[in-house]
Design a protein around this nucleic acid. Structure first.
Length: 555
RNA sequence: GCGCCCGUAGCUCAGUGGAUAGAGCGCUGGCCUCCGGAGCCAGGUGCGUAGGUUCGAUUCCUAUCGGGCGUACCA
């Protein structure tokens, strides 16, 4: 347990004990302990920790909040505290002095790369599925946001003690592949000089033409004489291979590596979809109407039932997705997290309903809806659509602004919030991106260590209590927060908290740097500050790595 | 029409059932003869509107206005 967590724990135990004693002595009457919090107050004048326990208990105990607080304080063993105080409407503030802060630095230095990690998740198996872009085109900004979010979230969960598996679901079957085949065929014939009309709802992207050219280089006009359906199948198969490799490479360059690439087609081939439909049928959720098989999703709150197997015998995407989720749970994942674009929100309730219909607890499925990315160029919104073929690709984005800036930027916002990505700004002022601010702090520390031209002192030989400046104490305090920050981000599935933390940490370091000279002539103080700087370096690096951003030694 | 998300500082966005709501950008003025000035310090009449719950609401609930998205035998 982290230092902060154990102090918080100790305060809680003391409060609980005080309340119990008060009740035994008849000083307070209540039936259950309130769900109070112990937090670090915003104002440091309000102490190191504070609780609202007295205010929450006031009503049930029929006692004024401050009076409840007085009773708690009376029984509270505060011998290990500097001061305990009742304040405002009934807060109890705890003042710890500074000694506890000095325990933190040696811990950080010892734990090094593992600092920030905890066993919060107790090794629970979690799967995170993200991006899962259609392999009919290149990755765009929306996919990039999903990639940054999903990868960072996975890292966060891992650091918080979960066993994480990252997965990409390849939609290599169904209607869109038919459509893909038609588009490829049209381009293929066009490239070979035939005057063919391109399908109206086909994939207009330039990249498909390139793909077709590549295929022609390999097989020439070999498919010309084939049956249309066979030809489309051949073209689609080859194109998919190329597209999937391209997607893999792009994501790898973006710093994202998956544990599993799962093909939708395998669900068709293995009979998993059929099995799933049979299970639903046995449970009485399936009926036939107009030659199609329907799932009674209205039983789970949907407005209308959904088609599983079309009248032409082909399963819908939803049917495959149900089979996919059944497969996920069968693989033993305790929790399954999906990151979807907000345009799929209508699918959430249905999917959870389907999970429930299969007798799994729908709470085990968490879906993070990510609002779409709005792209600005020349002050205008660019619409992104694979159909129209107009979109900025992940590759182009990385070429323009770099991987680090892009990843940091995408995670900086809450998934709930629209992301305005101004390409001009990103290009013109990339050096002012917040990521540089954080990286600069890291590089600065390296620069100090380089100037030192010697090895760092051993922590046990250093007197950390010499660090008394406000800037020093605040910096240590922020470092100490990392484990709980990570747990909080993992619990709430909100990786964007980390970018915030990184920025705050960097800011406190810069403040420290400007007000306290590290390489001072005073030997003992210099040693202590050097190790504070080094602990900051470790903390910054660990956070940046979780974000998939490099921690540079110089810039 | 119905459903989901979002309305917080000039702009882009954090945040919380509590004690004085924050950061970046932009703007203005300062700061190392010394460890990297890609930095630091200072400067602010802002929680869309109206009700409700609460000791306490920017946060929860209802209504309403505005923006985005969804509402296919598409995915």
């Amino acid at each position: 347990m982290s230092v902060v967590a154990s102090i918080r724990d100790r305060i809680r135990k003391e409060i609980d004990k005080s309340l119990q004693e008060a009740q035994e002595k008849g000083e307070l009457t209540f039936t259950r302990l309130p769900d109070y919090i112990v937090e670090a107050p915003r104002e440091k004048a309000h102490g190191d920790f504070a609780t609202n326990a007295a205010m929450l208990l006031a009503k049930e105990a029929r006692t004024a909040p401050r009076a409840v607080a007085q009773v708690i304080v009376k029984h509270f063993d505060a011998s290990w505290l500097d001061k305990i105080e009742i304040a405002g409407p009934g807060f109890i503030n705890f003042y710890l002095g500074t000694n506890w802060l000095y325990e933190i630095l040696p811990n950080v230095l010892r734990e090094d790369g593992a600092f920030g990690c905890s066993n919060f998740g107790r090794g629970e198996k979690v799967q995170v599925e993200f991006v899962s872009a259609n392999p009919t085109g290149l990755l765009h900004m929306g996919n990039a946001r999903g990639a940054a979010l999903g990868d960072t979230l996975s890292n966060v969960l891992q650091a918080a003690g979960f066993e994480v598996s990252k997965e990409f679901y390849i939609n290599d079957a169904g209607n869109q592949i038919e459509n893909f085949g038609k588009s490829l065929e049209a381009r293929y014939l066009q490239q070979l000089g035939q005057d063919v009309v391109f399908p109206e709802d086909g994939y207009h992207g330039e990249d498909i033409i390139d793909t077709v050219k590549n295929i022609i280089n390999e097989v020439g006009d070999k498919y010309l004489g084939e049956d249309a359906s066979i030809r489309r199948e051949h073209l689609a198969k080859r194109a998919l291979q190329e597209k999937i490799v391209a997607i893999k490479n792009d994501l790898e360059r973006f710093g994202v590596r998956y544990d599993v690439w799962f093909k939708e087609s395998s669900l068709h081939e293995s009979g998993a979809i059929k099995e799933t439909m049979e299970e639903l049928q046995q449970k009485g959720y399936i009926y036939e109407k107009e030659q199609a098989l329907w799932f009674k999703t209205t039983l789970f709150g949907d407005e209308k039932d959904e088609v599983m197997i079309r009248s032409n015998g082909i399963p819908t995407y939803f049917a495959a997705d149900i089979a996919y989720h059944r497969n996920k749970f069968a693989r033993g994942f305790q929790r399954v997290i999906n990151i979807w674009g907000a345009d799929h929100h209508g699918h959430v309730a249905r999917m959870k309903g389907a999970v429930k219909a299969l007798d799994y607890d729908p709470e085990r499925l968490r879906i993070i809806l990510m609002q779409l990315v709005r792209l600005y160029q020349n002050g205008e919104i660019l619409r992104m659509s694979k159909r129209s073929g107009q979109y900025i690709t992940l590759t182009e984005l990385m070429d323009e602004v770099g991987k680090d800036a892009a990843r940091f930027f995408f995670v900086m916002r809450s998934p709930d919030s629209h992301l305005d990505f101004d390409m001009d700004l990103a290009k013109a002022e990339s050096s002012e991106n917040p990521v540089y601010y954080v990286q600069y702090a890291h590089a600065r520390i390296y620069s100090i260590l380089k100037t030192l031209r010697g090895s760092l002192p051993q922590p046990e030989t250093v007197n950390f209590t010499l660090l008394k400046e406000e800037a020093e104490l605040q910096l240590i305090r922020k470092i100490a927060d990392l484990p709980e920050e990570i747990i909080g981000a993992a619990e709430s599935l909100e990786p964007h908290r980390l970018t915030r933390y990184a920025h705050e940490l960097a800011s406190l370091f810069h403040t420290f740097y400007n007000s306290c000279r590290v390489l001072t002539d005073e030997d003992e103080l210099r040693k202590a500050r050097l190790l504070l700087a080094d602990a900051t370096r470790i903390t910054l690096r660990n956070v940046l790595h979780m974000l998939g951003v490099t921690a540079p030694e110089r810039m």
